[in-house]
Structure formats: structure tokens, C-alpha cells
Design a protein around this nucleic acid. Structure first.
Lengths: 344, 344
DNA sequence: TTGAAAGCGCTAACAC
DNA sequence: GTGTTAGCGCTTTCAA
């Protein structure tokens, strides 16, 4: 592939502004040691000329690596695309570039993506999405990431329990308690859970929240009907089928994410189970179209885009002596998919 | 942003192999002019040491980066996140990195993103999403992109009319004709259109398809009720409000994308207009959750992820003498939001 | 077939 | 404050 014709360089801007390379560099980086008047002139000329720095040269020379690596399970999953939206937005404001990789909920592939990003010399890595309950499944990733951090790279995780990284912590357990409390308040006592694979820490945490709420209400959470399946729409369908078959007197289903909730609603529609009159359904996440389902989905709202924004903002601040933890908070959004428990 | 400490360099590999930098470079790049035996030794040592080239140095010194720039209007819009999913998938298979930027449906911002990607020396640019009817709105972008292509860069557009680029062409006009034909066959005669801004070429093309279908059925398409608004869910709400007010005898609304269709459904629910008994609604795109709305949305399916895959695959093939055009095809997906026209 | 040397465009010590 | 100069790690002429 031929090499793109060389474009405007910093030297051109410097020349036009009648200053040296260094001064131009400082002015554009906003560093001080330049008279404000001169700096302003350089910036103006740079803008007029449409100058854009070559990030490779910049990185090579030891400047800031202006790239953010974002690892998601799957970008076309609304949970991740909304988070990514937040990351890309902040990146755009700061003239950073975002590289997106899929881990596909596969620890080996995730490791590969991490290595790739590190080889690219990205300055920031953001990992979004559940980790694994068993630390051995991500031991290698952790090792690579530690080395990355030791070398000065910035790491932020969203929804993982990494001891040594800044983290955006979704209210998984608390949110699950809240939504379960909502169902209890509506009089439901026979509540079932549609869960993803329990080896995902997000699933385990949310499930713990449901169990805690039930225990708090004096209900035996150890025999809580639990249907595990994939953490997806189809998984939700399968889980609902099993719940209907094995626990026919269930009056409410808590799905541990909205994707599963949608599958649950779909299965209930197929079986002509009226929602919420015969069965209440609640989800988790509040993805953008949860309000547009019918019935509108009662769910726990996480501020997804905001989580993405925070993750990048944290990474861009100078590292703290101790890793930062930022809880997302959550909000119960009551729509039409939950209602009073049917009286018997 | 901090800078990761420098790692193993090519010079280290060269030294260990007892050859010059040049020879090592050649050996690893697989270029000839190196005795096979020497090349093999260099490669072995490089592997043993775990050497990974610094892509910034590599890009700066010569070739283009093995990076794909993907410009979308908004990554958290399902239309784009599904396309992006396809692109990221193919990229993952080929060890390429995908950089995502938002244009935000703003030509100026799009131009800025294009410049960034070019400055970044990406080898491939993929632009997804509607262009503008008025060529002047994207004249600058076109100029930059032409220069990029002249310099050897590969460009693929999804859903734009760029003469000189490989293109994935969604069946906008054809799909609109199909879905309008479906409504006509159901007996609808008073059909209204909820459209995005007409300056978007996608909107114009889809609208032309609706008009053509009506004309083909001998209906006066020049007085076709048309409500223009933003090409989003909220825009759909507003458009529906206006249609209900100004054309109360309408029996079917064609929304020119699914986002608007969802807004239309929402507005109709608010006004207690039964769908499809009193009003049929059709969308366009078939985003993943269109089936889960209630009623399930009748729409025109575009193979979004496949479009993303094709776009990158085309870009990675050697350029053809003439730009390639790949039509997506389309498929009418009939669900519950359309039904027979109410008899009067 | 191999190597020396000249950059690629930028930042950062170190002068002035 | 501002400029000079030496790299960052690699590819690529151009000689040998």
C-alpha cells in the first residue's frame, strides 16, 4: 500500500506562526512556558490550516499515547453499545481515539485482545463487562494488565472486582435487592430467577441481591427457584420455559438482565401468560428500548452511558495512590410488567 | 496520559541474532533479500524473546497502520452498533484494530473525524450512515477522502452515494417500495410517512420508494402526507402527533426507520389508537428488538451485521479498477403492527 | 545478500 | 520565554 502523501506537519504551523517547533509544540499541548499571546496565535494558525498532529510521531517521541482501548463482550449488545457511547463521547471531547475489541465472553479471547492493545502501546485500557467468579479464569489477563499498569498504563474496569484498578462498580447486589423488594411489596412470595451463567460475577452478585432481599423478608432463599441459561434473550426464553414447567405457581420472575427479561416476556407471550396479571417480570439494566416493550419493562436502571463516561474520565485523571471505586447508583424504574401478586 | 515504559526493540533482536537492524527488519517483514537461513534465525529469536514491533514507530517510518477507522453517527444506535459488530468481527479475525468515531450526524464533525483518522494513518476508512442530498454539505469530506484514496488508503461507504468508493448499498428505495406495497395490498389508501430530515440521502431515497409504490398503484403521491422530524424515536413521536392532528383519516404510517417507528408506536399508545386495528405501522431496518416490541414491528430487514462484514471485506481486497457496489438485498418482515385497512 | 545512514513527525532535555 | 538538539523505534534508500 503506497504511503499517504505527507500532510501538514507541526513544522509548517511553526513556520507560519514564526516560532520554533518547540514553542509550537508547547502551545498546542497547552503546556506553559509560552507567552499566552504567542500560544493563541499558534493555536489559531493551526486551526486555520486544519493541522492534526501525527499521533504516531507523538507517541513515539514520548508524548501521550492518545489511544484508549475498550474491550467489550459484544458491541452490538445494547448494554455495551450504550457504555461505549459514553466512552466515545468523552474521547471525542478530548481528541482521543477509541479502539474497540470484542472479548465475546471468552477469557482466552479477552487475553488476546489485551495483549494486542498493549502491543499497540495504548495509554488506557477500559474493560467493560462481567468478570469471572473463579479468579483462575482470568489469571493471565490480570498478569498482563498488572504489567501494563506497572509500565504506567491506566486501567479502568466496569463491573469487575480487580483489586488494583480504578473501577466503576454497578450496583448489582443493591439493585437486585431493590427490585426484589418491589416485588415483595406487591405481595409476591413465589418469585423465580432467570439467571445467566453463575460463573459470571455479575450474575452471582445480582443473584446474591435477590437472595438477600428474600432472606430479609423471612423467605427461605435456599429453595429459590433458579433457572440458569445464557445471559441473552434466548437464554431468557429457555429459563422462562423451565420456570413455567418446574414451578408453575410462580407469580414473578426476576431476570438478571434486560436481555433475558425480553426473552422471558417473549416466552410468556407464546404461552399466553398475561403479564403482569398472572406473572410479573422485572429486568436489570434499563437498556434504551426497555420502555418500548409491551408491557413496558420494570427494571433497575444503571446509567450506562454515564458509566462509560466515568470510566474514561477516571482513567484520564492522574492515578490515585489507592485505586478509585465509583459506585453507579441505581434506580428502580417501575413500568407495566410488574403488578400485584394474583390473589389465590 | 502516562507512557508505558519502552519494551523490547528490534535492535535487541538484531543484536541477539548478530545481524543489522535492516536485516532484522527485512526478515520479520518477510521481505526478500535475506538468506533464508538468516531470516529463520531472526524470526526464531524474535519469537523466543516475545518481541512485538512498536506500531507507532513502524507507521511513522513507512507503511500505513493496520488499523480500520469506522465512522458512525452514533454507536449506541442499534442500527450502527449492529453494523459495527460485523466490522469488529471481521477485524478480529484478521488481527486488525478498529477505531470508532462518532460523526453525530453533523458534517463538520464528520470532517473532523475523517481528518483524525487520516492523520492517524489508518489504512482503511469505513463510513456508515446516510450522506447528504446536497453534495456541498460533504464537499470537504469528499476532498479529504479522495486525497486519502489517492495516497493508497481504502475507503468503503455504507449507505452513501460516493462515486469513487467501494460501497455497500442498502436497498433503501426498493425496501420502501416493498413495504408500501404490503400496505397497499392490505387495502390501505390513506398512508402517511414519518420521515427524518429530507436532507439525509437515506431519508430521501426511502421516501422516493414510498412515493414510487403509490404512484405505481395509481395513487397521487404528490399529496402524500409527510411529517418530517428528527430521524430518531422522539422524531417519530412528533411526526405521529402531527399526522394524527393534520391527517386524522390516515390508516397506515410508514416510518422511514425503526427508531421513528418506535416513537410512532409510543405516540399511538398515548393517544389510545389501536395498532393495527385502527392504524398500521411499519418501520425500516429490523433492528434486533423490533420483534420484541408490542405489537411486533412489521419492517424491512437489512442484514446489518452482514453489511459491516462486507464493508470491511471489500476494503481488504485489493482495489478493483472500478469501485465495487454491493447491494444488500432486503426482506419484508411482517409482524403484528400491520393489518387490513379498517373498513369505513 | 547485507549494512550504514537518513529520515518519518514529534516531544523533551538542555541551552540561551 | 524561546530555540537548539537529540532522540523515540522503525523502514527504506543507497552503497558496499
Amino acid at each position: 500500500m503506497p504511503r499517504p502523501r505527507s500532510r501538514l506537519r507541526l513544522a509548517d504551523v511553526a513556520e507560519r506562526a514564526g516560532v520554533s517547533l518547540t514553542t509550537a509544540s508547547r502551545a498546542l499541548a497547552g503546556r506553559d512556558g509560552v507567552r499566552e499571546e504567542v500560544a493563541e496565535r499558534v493555536r489559531r494558525i493551526s486551526r486555520e490550516l486544519g493541522y492534526v498532529a501525527n499521533p504516531h510521531a507523538r507517541t513515539l517521541a514520548g508524548g501521550t499515547a492518545s489511544t484508549v482501548g475498550l474491550i467489550v463482550h459484544q458491541i452490538d449488545d445494547p448494554y455495551f453499545s450504550e457504555i461505549a457511547g459514553g466512552v466515545v463521547q468523552v474521547a471525542g471531547e478530548r481528541d482521543l481515539i477509541v479502539q474497540i475489541c470484542h472479548s465475546g465472553r471468552n477469557p482466552q479471547n479477552e487475553l488476546r485482545q489485551i495483549r494486542h492493545l498493549i502491543a499497540q502501546r495504548v495509554g488506557v485500557i477500559i474493560i467493560a463487562g462481567s468478570g469471572y467468579v473463579d479468579p483462575r479464569m482470568e489469571a493471565e489477563s490480570r498478569a498482563e494488565l498488572s504489567a501494563f499498569q506497572d509500565a504506567g498504563g491506566r486501567l479502568t474496569v466496569i463491573g469487575r472486582h480487580f483489586l488494583n484498578a480504578d473501577a466503576v462498580r454497578p450496583d448489582n447486589k443493591e439493585g437486585a435487592e431493590t427490585v426484589t423488594g418491589h416485588l415483595l411489596a406487591l405481595g409476591h412470595r413465589r418469585i423465580a430467577v432467570a439467571a445467566g451463567e453463575m460463573l459470571l460475577s455479575t450474575v452471582a452478585d445480582r443473584f446474591a441481591g435477590v437472595a438477600a432481599a428474600l432472606a430479609g423478608a423471612g423467605l427461605p432463599s435456599d429453595e429459590l427457584p433458579l433457572a440458569q441459561a445464557e445471559f441473552t434473550r434466548d437464554g431468557g426464553r429457555h429459563a422462562a420455559e423451565r420456570i413455567l414447567r418446574d414451578h408453575p405457581d410462580t407469580t414473578a420472575i426476576v431476570a438478571l438482565n434486560d436481555a433475558m427479561a425480553i426473552g422471558v416476556l417473549s416466552a410468556l407471550r407464546t404461552h399466553r401468560v398475561p403479564v403482569p396479571h398472572r406473572m410479573s417480570v422485572a429486568g436489570f439494566d434499563d437498556v434504551s428500548f426497555a420502555a418500548d416493550l409491551a408491557p413496558g419493562l420494570t427494571t433497575v436502571r444503571l446509567p450506562l452511558a454515564e458509566m462509560g463516561r466515568q470510566a474514561l474520565s477516571m482513567a484520564l485523571r492522574p492515578p490515585a495512590s489507592r485505586p478509585r471505586r465509583k459506585s453507579t447508583g441505581h434506580e428502580l424504574v417501575v413500568r407495566d410488567s410488574t403488578g400485584p401478586a394474583p390473589s389465590r
